[in-house]
Structures are given as C-alpha cells and as structure tokens.
Amino acid sequence: MTQIPSAAPPGLVLTGACVSLAGKAVLHDLTLHLQEQRIGIIGRNGSGKSTLLRLLAGLIAPSTGRVQVEGVDPFRARREMLSHLGILFQNPDHQILFPTVEEELRFGLEQMGLPKAEAQAQVMALLARHGRSHWQGVSTATLSQGQRHWLCLQAVLLMQPRSILLDEPFAGLDLPTQARLTRALAALPQRLITITHDPGSLAGCDRVIWLEHGRVAADGPPEAVLPRFEAEMQRLGGLDADADLAG
C-alpha cells in the first residue's frame, strides 16, 4: 500500500479550481471534496463534466486553484497517480493501446515498475481467474464492444487504484453488456466516480453532483438531486433552443 501523508485529506479535493480551454472558461471556481464510495457527476453535454473528469484525472492542469488526489497533484505526479486513480474512457478504442490482450493488460503493471516476467504472471493469473486464458495472444481489434470494455476495466483494475473515474460507462452498450458491467462495478471495493448525462445510472450512488455551465448546480444524495435534474432536463427538452453554438 502507498503511504498517504497524514495531513492530506483522503479522497479527491478541488480547491477553487478553474479551467479555461482556448481562452474560454469551462469550469468556474470549483471547490469539492470527494470521498464517498459511489459518486455520480451529472450534467448536460457541454456542462463541463468531461473537463472535470480530465482535471480530476490529472490529464489537464487547472488554470487557477488546486487539485489533489490522496494529497498528491495528479497532473504533476502521473506515475504516482497510477496506484491512486484509474480512468475508464468512454470509447474503448481510445483506451486500448496495444495489438494483443496480454500486452494491453501488462502495460499498466510495467508502468508501475513491475518487471516484465512478474507483470506477465499477474496477467496470466487474471485471465485464468476469469476463465479467459485463451485470450492471451488475441488481437484486441477482433474483440466485441463488450469484450473491449471488459479488457479496459481489467487493465485499470490490475493496477489496483484507490479510485476509478468512469466516463459514460454505459454509452453504446447493449442491455446484457450493461447489466454485466453494472454487476462488475457494483462488486468493486474501489471508490467509483461516474460521469454521465443519464440519471438512471446514478440511482445507487452515495452522492450526486449536478454540473451546469461549469458550476455546481446541486450536490447531495441522489433522491434529492436527480428529480430536480430530470425536471430541468424535461423543461429544456420542451424548449426549441438548439441553435446556439458553443464558444
């Protein structure tokens, strides 16, 4: 286990974080402390939720303010972050980097400093545990959409992060695949932060944060936040105002 400095609060902490992309403010002065086990971040397209995911993950740095994950700046300490934070991207094709299943799974472990042989042994053990040993040399391009999602999730889990960020985890999946993924996620001991526009997938969360125009519109238990969110989405859907261009 990684030592957590005692002074740092556990979890993910944003302090007055702002993000501007191409000169346009996308996130305004966010201050949040995320430490619950199941957190949902909900918002419309363009609400800034994907930017928030990238900020939390350390893929971008805040323009002003501070981000800390288990007391560490995720943008600076990428390697260190691997044991704190995993990210599951929406489109597996954007996440899978390698031509074969074993290389894909092994990569994260090697990134964490494991020797190749040991990483390989862990990968083989994982595949065997899931009855998929025959997947070892299989080309990632030939896997189905659901299988690719499974592979991405396992690649993240092998690194045993404390928290996992999920970007629209159910987008584009058929119902059986959704059900399987929901079950797999529910069983995880990790803290899960799900970013989505779909209130239906957040019902079981401990806490839901509604993001609107880069600010927190509501923050609380799902039964308090989600009905208000849905009512507002219904209202917006009734309007005929889709002609505005962003930026």
């Binding site: 993950a57 893929l59 972050m81 691997l82 980097l97």
Partner: peptide, 16 residues
C-alpha cells in the same frame, strides 16, 4: 486519435 491516445497514455503513466 493521436490526441485521445496521448491522453490514454498519460492516464496510464505516460510514455516514459
């Protein structure tokens, strides 16, 4: 794709 893959690579510890 080059941009998203760069991001995915960063997410898993970078190209070292």
């Amino acid at each position: 794709d080059a941009e998203t893959v760069a991001e995915a690579l960063r997410a898993r510890g970078g190209a070292g």
